[in-house]
Computed example of a mutant assay.
Amino acid sequence: MEEANQATVTWRKSTRSNGSGNCVEVADGLPGVVGLRDSKDPAGPALAFQPSSWAAFIRAVKDETLSR
């Protein structure tokens, strides 16, 4: 994700975040991507995923079907 885009994005943590500092933040609403970054390093790098890939990951987490 380009730095200019990342600076203007609104990031959110999960409502299930417990404040331990081991969180990721997600940016929705970017054209064609879902942004992901480490909440402990907001100025650090961000990952960008296709919305369909992110949705598949979230489904797998909810369904507990991720393999090790």
Rank of each mutant, 00 (worst) to 15 (best):
M1R: 15
M1Y: 05
M1I: 11
E2A: 14
E2G: 15
E2T: 15
A4F: 05
N5S: 14
N5T: 14
Q6L: 14
Q6C: 10
Q6G: 07
A7T: 13
T8N: 15
T8P: 08
V9F: 05
V9W: 09
V9Q: 15
T10A: 15
W11E: 09
R12W: 01
R12S: 08
K13Q: 13
K13P: 00
K13I: 05
S14Q: 09
S17N: 14
N18G: 15
G19A: 10
G19S: 11
G19M: 08
G19V: 10
S20T: 08
S20V: 03
N22V: 02
C23Q: 14
C23A: 05
C23D: 06
C23N: 11
V24I: 07
E25W: 11
V26Y: 07
A27T: 11
A27Y: 11
A27S: 12
A27E: 02
D28Y: 13
D28W: 06
D28F: 01
G29M: 07
L30P: 07
P31I: 07
G32N: 14
G35H: 04
L36W: 15
L36F: 14
R37N: 04
R37M: 05
D38F: 05
S39E: 00
S39G: 03
K40I: 01
K40F: 00
D41Q: 09
D41R: 07
P42E: 08
P42R: 06
A43Q: 09
A43V: 02
A43C: 08
P45K: 12
P45V: 11
P45L: 07
A46K: 10
A46D: 01
A46E: 03
A46S: 12
L47H: 12
L47A: 09
L47V: 10
F49T: 01
F49L: 04
Q50N: 10
Q50T: 13
Q50Y: 02
P51K: 06
P51E: 12
S52T: 11
S52L: 11
S53A: 14
A55D: 13
A55Q: 12
A56Q: 13
I58A: 07
I58M: 03
R59C: 01
R59H: 08
R59M: 02
V61I: 04
V61D: 00
K62R: 11
T65E: 04
T65P: 03
S67D: 06
R68D: 00
R68Y: 01
R68V: 12
